[in-house]
Design a protein around this nucleic acid. Structure first.
Lengths: 344, 344
DNA sequence: GAAAGTCATAAAAACGTTTCGTTTTTGCAA
DNA sequence: TTGCAAAAACGAAACGTTTTTATGACTTTC
């Protein structure tokens, strides 16, 4: 493949002139400019981004690590991030952590070797030592998204998951439900803890006892939720409402309820967190708390690129940003009010 | 950041020894091996992938261009591709063409500058000049996926879309439907043409006249399909069955039908192409032709990596591969038989 | 009309690797 | 000891850029 040297020879100019023409970094006479462009066209020259990156000491790629590439929540996020990043001239390396710490850390190492200019991460871990490991490992701008980390020295942009869970729970309580089951995701995730916490808080405030039997762990997956809800509804005194704590589990819950012959919302109310892109096609229309994914995506890229540019220009680091977005409660058709308190 | 030279100095060995230790490319005494690893650990050294790529003349990244990153079909494909690629030690650069030729071509140029080792592409164009442009532009292994190109000199892996459309149409015909509407996607796409063709073929074989009024163009999008179906069902003599030619449009069709108060499948039958990951959660359960996405993904990565390795080892190019997969018809609950032909 | 600037261009160094060709060290038989 | 082959280690070149520094050719200025 033709390189800059070939172009220079073909055009009868020096290498530096070619570089100047391509990048517009210096003034070149019209005559030579034309010669250079002609040579480039003739040779089908395409500048070598790898060599450029080496010389410049920085790349044009940013890494994005999410728990599950195919989860509609992340899918939407990825789309926004990719759009935003590509408009700013960056490439996005996307990778799956499967919500496993080891995999994630391995990916970050690989990203480091690739010298990505920045990283957007939905972190899997949740404790201090993990945070320290992260700080040790990553030496480029890093933005945490969707999940928080205690005392982490990184820009973070999340939704108030505690509030989201309270919204759902309070709503169900207001509809006179007292036995409200929750289907909750992977243990170690920040979102899981926050949502469980919000659920508890809402119950406590309403004077409803927290009942372990109504808390089902479903690993954030559809089929696990499906089975958990089947189990739940087979109990002697099942719940009157189900709170599914993410999109996939919500789907599993709806499916289990429907297939067991329960009418939703008449016989059982279902609500959840995460709206789905195709939510309007699902019957009953699901009452959910929607996350402002678009904002999360754009803000995180903004934050990241801001820091990357600063680093490039050697500017003083800005103070750490921690954005907490407010989710939006969408009341639709999957819940009904109970006549009167079912118990107590 | 520490480089190989620092490591060499710290370990008291030569640069080439460090390289040999890292890559296992030459035999190094246990003593020095230990010295090197110690130095690497102490300095927190991480090899520079950019420099390595420059020296080696090849990168570890492959580019993936799809029409819509957030479309569940591509989402599933992306997941498979990423998994497969990362297991083989490659990174995936993912980008959105929005099904626009110019954007796609621009992306390919950028990928070329980045010196990706190979490209997987769902091509947007469909004519000869586009194919030539592609061949001119891309000088690394290129695998076409999901969509074919006439006489293109690239490995291709697609589903038999004509067959898929015939499956759906034949099924509806067998259920005595005679007025079968089709909701079809973007004009210039190969899949669109194939599906429309399959629809026509099935009609013709059954002796049913092709009726322009029953062919709705919906740009492959949910809301366009929604409106088209609304229009369709407002006609004096609407169709008794609707064939939606992709996942998003299928969703839009179902929604329109439901919201207009029609019962599916009792009053109107709906079937489509593309299964959805959460299809079991949608009521009625949709009768669709499912594409073997997993196979498409794994095969395309296999094909691509095969060629990339060949190119690396300077082996003779293998003959061009063209894989046509057979889709799978999933009969579920969204269609019913008409008592007798609605019109002869 | 000469000194002092501009301006366009070129030459060379540097970025961090891998690898080839060469030199040094080691192990062992004579 | 000496000699020699094999093993281990090293030095230098090369990959394709960008950028700094140097240089020659015009312009300006007094």
């Amino acid at each position: 493949m033709a390189n800059i040297k070939d172009v220079a020879r073909q055009a009868g100019v020096s290498i530096s002139t070619v570089s100047a023409v391509i990048n517009g970094t210096a003034r070149v006479s019209p005559k030579r400019t034309k010669l250079v462009w002609d040579a480039i066209r003739q040779l089908g020259y395409s500048p070598d981004g790898v060599a450029r990156s080496l010389r410049l000491g920085r790349t044009k790629s940013i890494g994005l690590v999410v728990g599950d590439i195919a989860n509609p929540f992340f899918t939407s996020l990825i789309k926004v991030v990719e759009k935003q990043a590509s408009e700013a001239g960056y490439f996005v390396l996307i990778a799956n952590s499967d919500d496993e710490v080891d995999k994630e850390l391995h990916l970050l190492k690989l990203f480091k070797e690739q010298r990505v200019a920045g990283i957007i991460l939905a972190p899997v871990g949740d404790d201090r030592s993990y945070t320290e490991e992260l700080a040790r490992l990553v030496d480029v701008p890093l933005v945490l998204v969707d999940r928080q980390l205690p005392d982490a020295p990184f820009d973070t942009i999340v939704v108030d998951n505690n509030l989201a869970a309270q919204m759902v729970t309070n709503y169900l309580i207001k509809l006179n439900h007292r036995r409200i089951a929750i289907i909750i995701g992977k243990h170690h995730l920040w979102t899981t803890n926050e949502r469980l916490e919000g659920y508890r808080t809402a119950l406590t405030r309403a004077g409803i006892a927290y009942d372990d039997n109504l808390v089902c762990f479903a690993e954030s997956q559809t089929d696990a939720a499906y089975h958990e809800v089947q189990r739940l509804l087979s109990m002697p005194e099942p719940s009157t409402a189900i709170f599914a704590a993410n999109n996939l589990m919500l789907l599993g819950a709806v499916q289990a309820v429907t297939e067991m012959g329960f009418k939703c919302p008449e016989e059982i109310s279902i609500a959840g967190i995460d709206d789905l892109p195709w939510s309007s096609s699902i019957r009953p229309k699901l009452t959910t708390v929607a996350q402002p994914i678009e904002t999360m995506g754009t803000r995180s890229v903004e934050l990241l690129i801001g820091r990357m540019e600063d680093a490039k220009n050697g500017e003083a680091p800005r103070p750490q940003a921690s954005v907490i977005l407010t989710p939006k409660f969408l009341i639709r058709d999957s819940c009904t009010a109970l006549e009167k308190p079912a118990s107590s």
